[in-house]
Amino acid sequence: MVSAATLERPASALPAGSALDLRHVSHAYQLKGEPLPVLDDVSLTAAPGEFVALLGPSGCGKSTLLRLVAGLEPPARGELFVDGAPVTGPDPSRVVVFQDPTLYPWRTVWRNAALGLEARGLLKSQRGRVDAALTLVGLDGFASAYPHQLSGGMAQRAALARALVNEPRLLILDEPLGKLDSLTRIAMQGELVRLWQRQNFTTLLVTHDVEEALLLATRVVVFSPRPARIRAEVPVDLPYPRHRDDPRLVELRREVLALLGVGDATG
């Protein structure tokens, strides 16, 4: 029996979370020959171990921002630093859980989760980490299943396990719980907080769900419609575990919804 504790880093390791520093980042895509501005002068910092949630209207540029932080694309303007060093490309210490699970259909769940270790040549010595991550997301019974045999929510959890196996110092989550049913979702939110508290990695979470952002994050960043600008940063000064009917949380929720321009709809 492999316990989730295998995933915890040794006490002597580096400071667990990365420091993140975005300075005046702007980005644009080419769409039919026209430049499409997506990010407009975004400056954002995150201290090591912080849990930052990003909220914004659909299509405003949140996923794009995550791609830049992951190092998958260079920004059109501005600079990104992680632990003081400029981001020049992807690095396994910064792991992304994408909006789509994008599991490899030709690999079993276990081999999908093992992807990062295999890519870095660590699989032989650290197989136990894969089992531990699958246990953590509740997929230990599906290790030998293929992705087409999973439900949408299970695929999302497999993608989460694939990220966690790599002991990220910065975990980048793009609506990772978007496809889960509400019960699994609540359970996974709890797991995510516990995991974050235990390992203390820095977390960047994109979500559409205001309540989820307030339940999980230490700070909520609200973006404008495309091109995304930071409209407000809302610190969430509440102890964990949080409760959705906490009066302070309800108050913050109203505040954030107002920033998103839908304050009246929920009264």
Binding site: L72, V96, L115, G116, A119, R162, N166
Partner: peptide, 8 residues
């Protein structure tokens, strides 16, 4: 992208 972020 998935593989690259994982260090491939």
């Amino acid at each position: 992208d998935v593989a690259r972020t994982l260090g491939a």
